[in-house]
Amino acid sequence: MGRAARTLLSAIVTLWAIATGTFLLMEHAPGGPESGERRLPPEVEAANLVRLGLADAVTGPCAEGPGECTRVERRPMLRRYVAMLGAIATFDLGFTYTSRGERTVRENLSEGLPVSAAVGGLALLFALLAGVPLGLYAASRGGGRADRLLAALATAGVSVPAIVLGPLLLYLFAIRLRLFPVGGLDSPASLVLPSATLGLILASVLQRMTRAGAAGFLEGPVAKALAARGLPRARLLGVHALRHAAIPMLGYLPPAVAALLTGSVVIETVFDLPGIARHLIGAAVNRDHPMVMGVVLAYSTLLVALTTASELLLPVVDPRLRGPARTGDEG
């Protein structure tokens, strides 16, 4: 099996494991539509269970007396599990429990995902465009004043939680200076502050990693040899040092994206954005099982996709990982 196929397979297995874990968690947590905690008339309860696909109406001989009767039989867990996997495979998780058959999970997600993805994508873009060049610049000025200033800023950046930076930017730029909308999503300008919050934090991390990787390379013999051969400084930095810095960065990408996604939960709350984060906690508290599954899988797919991409990119950046023959440990 090729490397790519293997990676894709492992991504699918991971998603399956997440779906199964989520399903089991919801099965065993107290409460939920099938728990019978609320005293409803039996007919209503039965109709609800059938509507939600948790039970079947079965027609058979009556318990007492002749004739045909209709009973409601709860579906066993395994059957619901298989049905759920099928629903996931067809991207159709049905209606959310809380909307009383008015909104599907897919509708909720397709409204929220573009917003969440835009914020996360812009933040990642900003972090890459700001963090990586600044890291290279700092490495090229190793130990100088610019390097130390950037290092101090990066330390502040990795120390500031999103729940601090978000409200700060909101207060300064939206409430005081009125440069951006305060909350909600009225125009693309609404995305600037949320993305900046997440982007600044991630940029600080990337700046540090780039600097560490590039500085390590620049001090090494390879860089000295290349420089001695007359390789232009810009090429040394922008191609060779960058490539060395990119290796640890790709390894860091999954936790960074996970941090970005969790940060987006906070940011969507602070800036009142209609993303999918608001569904995450609300649905879990309301025991809206299809919605929980939808949100968790949406986030997981995003994360797993990026992890997989970074794993597939690693051999492109790091020639040591290409092909089965590995030439010693030169790192």
Binding site: T14, I18, T22, A29, T262, V296, S300, V304
Partner: peptide, 19 residues
């Protein structure tokens, strides 16, 4: 490794919301 690549935090959020 698998847990590292998971949106593990979301499972934790889920877990706390549920328990």
């Amino acid at each position: 490794d698998v847990l590292y690549g998971l949106p593990y935090v979301f499972l934790v959020i889920l877990l706390i919301s549920l328990v």
